[in-house]
Design a binder for these strands. Structure first.
Lengths: 241, 241
DNA sequence: AATCATCATTTTGTATACAATCTGGCACAA
DNA sequence: TTGTGCCAGATTGTATACAAAATGATGATT
């Protein structure tokens, strides 16, 4: 059957993406880009004509996004883009700290030479973007560095969980441009755990990445709370960062 | 959340649960009970008449279960109950170890006296069930102990993530009755981390719960692989437990 | 004037009908 | 016999129509 498919595929790459799948991708992009701001209502019919699909695939897409915590579904009351609750973000960072530490340790033991080389290359880009002052490029490469480290852990469960939390944090960051001083600190911390990674020192790398995560959390949360951009109601928010 | 629901329910228990929601609950129960065995195909129409709902809510329910990794959806090819892949389970246990350790540490700092008392009571039940030889009751209480600890961490993100992984592990356990010797070991480990928890010793509790998780992983994976019940293809499975 | 009940509008939840795709088997030719 | 192309059945993806619930406004009553 490979030959049959190959023949057909060679002639025409049969468009084979379900509408719901592309709807999920598009909506997720919209939300992560801040196009649909946190807390905004998301009427189904409006999105239908916006995306050019009917309600059925759109609703299924919303269910998927709800499972990623990108939207909230209230029965009979519609969907809203999940508001950024500083307490939720603080909680996510608590878990992220553990995940990054785990990832770093596993990466030291399971990463390939090629991956370590890629990490080095990415880190060089990071330094370059810092010196150029290109903030957007820096944070893009920054995310990629962490993603590569997580990937090196050879753990799909970890990877999926990490990606979900990373998306939430990205959303939180986008609405609170955080401290400029933090930039220098961040790079210094990157230098630190990169050194540990180059030595394949699992314990040190884990500890340093955890510390990096903790400092990032502190900065993001300070920006979030200072900004007052969140829509959540504060509670036991103190002890988190 | 119980209190909020209780308030409304107290005035008028307007039993209005959407069909999709109850369909999710019922299907999830079926899957976790092993009624729908891992790997089995799940034709939509068959489930429709079995649950007495139409395809629309059922499909949305399947999407939700897919996001929990309880079913897999292949486009145009239907859904199957997610097969138990020992490598996947090993990966989940790796993450669980980190999560349990995190939870124990946080629980020591954030748990209330009432919760610690509840833990003690549950532990007593655990001992009783062990002495009685009631294995089913033991494992039920066992799960509850861990759930309470996780709940004491006051971290919704952690709680949700933990619950998802716990469900997967439960499924894996159900199809491989694991070692009887393990039972005694398990109880001993429970005694250990309970002692640490009573002292509110976050570091020790974290370490002991991580160790407990690691030992459980080893036993479950040995049973899984010995049984040959999984459908996955083996790879880099060795270093996990 | 304020409060409560009632109703119309709007939005979501569900069912069903139609279109596209996959699977398996059959006939036909080499 | 073996391989290929094609067709029929079954299953999924999508659209639309209908039912139920929530929201907001309107009017009556106190």
């Amino acid at each position: 059957m490979d030959t049959a498919n190959a023949t057909k595929a060679a002639i025409g790459p049969i468009r084979r993406e379900t509408l719901q799948h592309s709807a999920v991708a598009e909506l997720r992009a919209m939300i992560l880009a801040g196009e649909l701001p946190p807390g905004s209502r998301v009427p189904e019919m409006q999105l239908c004509e916006q995306l050019g699909v009917s309600r059925t695939p759109l609703r299924e897409a919303l269910r998927i996004l709800a499972s990623e915590n990108l939207v909230e579904l209230r029965p009979h009351r519609g969907a809203v883009v999940t508001p950024i609750d500083p307490n939720e973000i603080a909680a996510i960072f608590e878990v992220m700290e553990a995940l990054e530490s785990l990832a770093a340790g596993l990466a030291c033991r399971k990463g390939t030479e090629a991956e370590f080389a890629e990490l080095d290359a990415l880190h060089d880009q990071l330094v370059a973007h810092f010196q150029t002052g290109n903030r957007l490029a820096y944070s893009t490469v920054n995310r990629r560095v962490h993603a590569v480290i997580v990937g090196m852990a050879r753990n799909p469960a970890l990877e999926t969980t990490y990606a979900g939390f990373a998306a939430q944090i990205l959303r939180a960051r986008s609405l609170a441009n955080y401290d400029a001083d933090r930039w220098q600190e961040s790079l210094t911390e990157h230098e630190g755990f990169m050194t540990a990674l180059r030595r394949r020192d699992a314990a040190a790398a884990g500890a340093l990445l955890a510390e990096h995560s903790r400092q990032t959390a502190k900065a993001v949360l300070r920006a979030l709370r200072g900004n007052g951009a969140g829509s959540g109601s504060g509670d036991a928010a103190s002890g988190a960062a």
